[in-house]
Design a binder for these strands. Structure first.
Lengths: 195, 195
DNA sequence: TAGCTTGTTGAGCGTTGCTCAGCAAGCGGA
DNA sequence: TCCGCTTGCTGAGCAACGCTCAACAAGCTA
């Protein structure tokens, strides 16, 4: 129970921005336990202490709502992975990998739900996901100081799928040390793009 | 409109086995246009020319129904990929890869919906998917005459994710020749498991 | 205080997953 | 030929859900 879920006795009137932010925030809190598309308007509204109707005032459809939640989650991931300015180029990719593994460790189910559920039929959600993946590929190629040609883009994109899967397996059952995992991923990436 | 969707004038009574098979078949026909979980009982029943209630007689819940459909789809894929008996060991993996690409080319959206939608929150569906992937990994390792140790299993599993993603990209935008794609996938696999 | 903007609600509609009591098709036995 | 049993099958109907709409009311400004 967070503050956002307590039904205030006197009806509280919020600014549009606040309300939107609150609703998205509730969606984020629910993500770990519920696949995005299965969020129910009733549940979210109940937690926000508002009527269903109000949610539809801010998000025209349920899809519009959970797309906003998905985008918020993607933004959090992106900000978490971005190298701190001033990091030596050599450490940037390793650092990102490290933080990515940490992210998956921390959020496990909710991250897997995001990654996989992304492609799960819903074009709106998968668009957000692909957009983030695209940005990450671009960042990776830039950081590695490699030309951004079509083939390399494809390879790095597919390597992300490889990495997501391997990290997913590792989190479920850590059969090697964490540094080994990072080194393995880095090694595969280097060999892929070095050709 | 297939024969199965024509509403017969006199009420037709089928055996339990026939009816089940028909319903699963209708699900398979709908897969290309609809993500499994979004199949509606109404639509399926309408196409079968039966009442909704009857579908619930054969499948206790909607989930049970689309899990059966998913399993049928997985079985089709598995049978399609299996090397013909008598194929020289050397060609088996390449042949499977070739047929896999062909499969994705043919079914495009429905396959992607299956692969990705698999993890999409639904444990029942993703179980079917993981089971199939596991069988494929085992088959691959056996065919390549490699020991089936934990690390190699993980790598080949992750390589499948890599391959799925790359093939998905290639089908959407074929930027290289088909043989080049096959050679690339095979090359990456060989290097991964050779260590 | 009046009036305007806009955050907010409740009643209600259509669809969908699911239940249940009971009908009826086809077979076997007398 | 009729009876009776099994079992494939239906229709009415409930609850949950997404979504709409007319109207209320909080809080600002004149």
């Amino acid at each position: 129970m967070t503050a956002s879920s307590r039904p205030e006795h006197p009806r509280l009137r919020r600014s549009a921005g606040d309300r939107r932010a609150q609703l998205v925030q509730i969606g984020l809190e629910l993500l770990p336990t519920t696949p995005v598309q299965e969020l129910t308007i009733d549940e979210v509204a109940r937690r926000a202490g508002i009527s269903r109707s109000l949610l539809f005032h801010y998000f025209a459809t349920k899809r519009e709502y959970y797309t906003a939640v998905t985008r918020a989650a993607a933004d959090l991931l992106w900000e978490h992975l971005l190298p701190a300015p001033g990091t030596p180029a050599e450490q940037q990719v390793t650092g990102m990998l490290d933080r990515y593994v940490g992210w998956v460790e921390t959020f496990r189910d909710s991250h897997l739900a995001f990654v996989r559920g992304a492609g799960g039929g819903d074009p709106w959600v998968s668009e957000v996901y692909e957009e983030t993946r695209g940005k990450l590929v671009e960042l990776t190629l830039t950081t590695l100081d490699l030309p951004d040609d079509a083939l390399r883009r494809q390879l790095v994109l597919a390597w992300f799928a490889f990495a997501e899967d391997l990290v997913g397996q590792w989190v479920a059952e850590p059969t090697m040390s964490r540094p080994d995992l990072l080194a393995l991923l880095r090694d595969v990436l280097d060999r892929l793009v070095a050709r």
